[in-house]
Computed example of a mutant assay.
Amino acid sequence: MRMRIDELAARTGVTSRNIRAYREKGLLPAPELEGRTGFYTDEHLQRLDIITYLQDRGFSLEAIRKTLDAWSAGGDFSHLLTLKQILNSPFQTEEPEVVSVPELLVRFPEAMHDATLLTRAMRLRLIEPGPSNQLLIPSPLLLQAGVELTRIGVPLAEVLDLFERVRVDLSGVADAFVGIAERFLVRPVELGTDGAPSPSDAIGALEKLRPLALEAVKPILIRELVTAVEDAVARLATALEQQD
């Protein structure tokens, strides 16, 4: 596909001025010239997609330039596109659920009397605005876990506290795993370090990161849960003995 700059801008949502700026900063190759008209190709389209993606995640233009140069050094820009797909694809497919407000309130009766609970759940993105004044549940499994906790007597406010705390803790775990991957996979490729993996090998390793992280965390969590439950049962037994 060949496009003039205005066509490229319309397809990507990036202004012609920014396209020229990216070209001047080395983020985009020069267009193919025919006479005085420059024509852009699918590679420009793909690069702009990656540039926008990385900018949205806080990368500076210089960092993006170095990343693009490193990942396309082998002449196969598909490496970087594959990386974007890996980062964007969910680890496990879970179909969102659409519910009405009354249906949600049936599951969480406490929210009928305290609207701030729903507001907080939306802030935590447990529920989101859906079509036709309905609500979207991004993770029905997570929502059902909240339902079960409230059924055994845990107040909904405490359930939300628990979710927020767990999300913060697991965010730290995720950062640790990704930090290891960046240190030993991504950065060596970006810097051209001797002995660095090829882009294909680095992407293959990154693709395995999430299942490996999950398998590593699961037994630790189970072990800690067993210990915590045993401690709670022991405290309960002690309390009952003291009542006799």
Results as ranks from 00 to 15, higher is better:
A232Q: 15
R235S: 10
A10H: 12
E207T: 11
R125M: 11
L117G: 00
E62G: 10
P109R: 07
E158T: 14
A111F: 04
A239L: 12
L141K: 09
R210H: 07
E34R: 14
G179S: 05
I19R: 01
L61E: 01
A145L: 09
F59Q: 00
F163N: 06
K66T: 12
A21D: 00
V99Q: 09
I86T: 08
T82N: 08
A213I: 05
R210E: 03
V147F: 09
K208W: 08
E148F: 07
F39S: 03
L162I: 10
A73K: 06
P138H: 02
K25P: 01
R36C: 06
I180S: 13
G130M: 04
A30C: 07
L160F: 03
A73C: 06
L135F: 04
Q144D: 14
R123P: 04
I5G: 02
A121S: 05
F108C: 02
K25C: 03
I5R: 02
D161R: 05
A196I: 08
S60G: 09
R57K: 10
L240G: 02
P219S: 10
T15F: 07
A73D: 05
E110I: 02
E95H: 12
N88T: 15
E182C: 13
D6N: 12
E182T: 10
R187P: 00
G195S: 05
G192D: 06
D161Q: 08
L81Q: 12
P29Q: 10
S89N: 13
G146H: 02
V226F: 09
N133F: 11
A228M: 09
R187E: 12
R17A: 14
R123S: 14
S16M: 13
N88Y: 09
G146W: 00
T238A: 14
R4S: 08
P197W: 01
A10E: 13
L160E: 00
Y22I: 01
P155I: 04
G204W: 04
V233P: 03
G13H: 04
P102C: 09
Q243T: 13
E158R: 14
T12Q: 03
F177A: 15
E182N: 15
D56A: 15
L8M: 07
A9W: 01
G38I: 03
R223V: 07
R11G: 00
D114I: 06
I51F: 01
D42Q: 14
P211F: 01
I220L: 15
Q242G: 11
L136Q: 06
V159W: 02
L143H: 02
S100L: 10
Q243G: 10
I127P: 00
L156C: 04
A157D: 14
L48C: 03
R120M: 05
L240W: 10
T227S: 12
V98N: 08
K208T: 07
A237S: 13
A115F: 11
E224V: 10
T93G: 08
I180P: 02
K208Y: 08
A111K: 01
A157M: 08
T93M: 12
G179K: 04
P29Y: 05
A239W: 11
E95P: 04
L143Q: 03
L83T: 02
L191F: 10
G35Y: 01
Q92W: 07
A174M: 11
D56E: 14
E62A: 13
R65H: 05
A205I: 06
A174N: 06
L162W: 05
A239Q: 13
Y40P: 00
L221I: 14
K66S: 13
Q144T: 13
A202F: 02
Q144S: 12
